[in-house]
Design a protein around this nucleic acid. Structure first.
Lengths: 211, 211, 211, 211
DNA sequence: GATGAATGAGGCTTCATTCAT
DNA sequence: CATGAATGAAGCCTCATTCAT
């Protein structure tokens, strides 16, 4: 309950915001501590009262990026809606947030990708959490008879792959915002309707690797 | 028409190779011009005879990365095999190449991703080419009755999205090599079997966005 | 005459002790004012109420180092024991104190040496005092017939030189604690038995400087 | 035989000299790389072509300090002069060099002491070498009957202690140049005439430690 | 009496790049 | 053609110290 914390917290907040602003103005994550301090109206040395190093600031920023998305997932899992729609919403809601961010400022978005590269641990944690929640939804779907013949782990992995453009910001960015709700819907349907173990008889893919 | 040109090309070659070697040894793209020159057995200043700047070198390196994969695609499109298998091979063959590179040296692989970030134009060109070839294959599939009710552009876009982990090295790396031929096969099948316009009656996804 | 003085003294005391403690824990004299304040449980700015500068603190610390040794010397001079033993005790008693301090914490000991370098004036005063007391003892010895042919000043200087490892903490430290009571005894004896003006006839040293 | 080495060596030389000059002008070892570069007429970055770090420069300087003294010792040991005079010369010759340096510039001398503190390894090597040579001389003296009743190791240690002001620059400096050839002669004589194992009967020191 | 906040000056080091030879 | 030498600009970080409250 000590108050000092609060002030420090406010300073951190301000710096993170200033950093975002700089990125927004300049594009890319090229700001220096000097830039940051200047823009935030404080001395370079004072920055170090709030973050022990430039790295620490970057880590904090990376962490914040996921805050709202984590909340979305947590909330959704507890909702009572049909499983197909649940999986759809699982991606759609986060997609909306990401798209908004991207549209607001693609450069800032890109800068956060860089930040992510620099602090992969932060990302890893978020990704694992997302996989966990997705597994819950997919298990529910399997109980209803979907993905016949496949193990849960496999389904999780496959679905994860097929929806990368909707949950992986990096891919989203690379595909330059081509991912939208309509496509997500079609893909989710293709997953529910077309994803199952090979039945052996019909025209399944055979090897044609020899280049 | 003077000979020097040739020597220039040889020098560029050597420098690119040296750069790769350094990355291989050190991991990540941290080499300096001094490092590069030393390893290549020439002076720092001489490096500038071959590349106008460090950036130019990076661009060259990024460009080379796609050379073999382009060849694979070009060749495949002309082969006469069933369309489902063709699409499968379209990704599987390149996947094999990328996986091999990744396994050989994950660090070098990662370094190339960084390089890609730095020189996105290079990547964009490759991606567009790949889309072009894929469109040819998918058009063929549509003639055979697949993806009913969907436009070619839409199909191209959707398929592209669903197979990102198999054609986008960055995603491949992020999923930590979870992408393999078996999963690709399942996904390709899901695409052929499950991807089509919504028929309106069955359990298709409905909107559940309201968080 | 106001009370504050007392508080100031208490604060100085506390800070000096805290500084010692930090050195003890960390080795070497690397603490910053921030460290010191934190460990002492006060604000950085408050430190300046007690010491005008970091330098002033260092000076105070250097001064305290000699307090007990000064007491030892003062006491000894007034004791009534044979002069040879008195000279021996003059060094032996202080040696014991220094060795104990060194053994307790060599790092702290070394840190004090640094402190001494920084504030030589403090040391100079102590050294002069020690010389003064030693002169009293040596004068007594000369009255008993020792050091025949030499002036008191010369004897003081010579003895001082020969016993550096037993009275100069820096030397003590450099010789890595090789100085002990046994050796001191042998040297004191050599001084009483061997130190006198050259008699001219026997094998005294002659010049052999020409390199 | 490559030439570049030479140039680098010249640069190192120049920087060391410049550093010495700065110390001479300013007193104490407070120069920064910026100072050094400015005084040497080059850019800060260029300094790093000659020394990998400020520390490396300091180490080099510390090392050079002993070069001539080492040469003196090596030469002396092989000379054929009476042992008492040899021991005397062993210290006297180096003393002369050190005194000259001290007189030339006490501040520079002091700065080198600091340098020594910072790079003790360098010093340790020199000290060990000196002890080695001294042991050779003292062993010779023992063969002639001196130091009766004492082990060589003990004699080395004791003599070492008694002549600190003549061989340990730090002590020399502390005693403010009181050490001179005359005193050295008296002390060497005292050593030869007075240093031996206690004979038990005469007025040897007894314990008077109880403060 | 005591604090938190803030600063300014400076420290070391790195590196792409240039240029005279 | 190729080099060695040199640079300048910048980057991150540290710390004693001050000052309004």
């Amino acid at each position: 309950m000590s108050r000092p914390q609060t002030d420090i917290e406010a300073g951190r907040e301000k710096l993170v915001e200033t950093a975002e602003q700089i990125i927004r103005e300049r594009g890319a994550i090229t700001f220096t501590i000097a830039d940051l301090a200047a823009e935030a109206g404080m001395s370079q040395s004072n920055v170090y009262r709030f973050f022990a190093s430039k790295d620490a600031l970057a880590e904090e920023m990376a962490g914040r990026w996921f805050a709202d998305k984590t909340a979305i997932m947590e909330k959704l899992v507890e909702e009572d809606i049909p499983v197909r729609e649940k999986l759809y919403a699982f991606f759609a809601r986060r997609l909306a947030v990401m798209q908004q961010r991207f549209d607001e400022n693609p450069e800032l978005f890109a800068a956060y990708m860089e930040l992510g590269d620099l602090h992969f641990e932060v990302i890893r944690g978020y990704v694992d959490l997302a996989d966990h929640y997705m597994a819950i939804i997919l298990a529910e779907a399997m109980e209803e008879g979907y993905f016949r013949g496949l193990e849960l782990d496999m389904v999780v992995s496959l679905v994860n792959m097929m929806v990368q453009p909707f949950c992986n910001p990096r891919v989203m960015m690379m595909l330059n915002r081509a991912a939208d709700e309509e496509k997500l819907r079609l893909i989710i349907d293709a997953i529910f309707d077309g994803l199952h173990a090979p039945s052996g008889q019909t025209g399944e893919t055979e090897l044609h690797l020899a280049g």
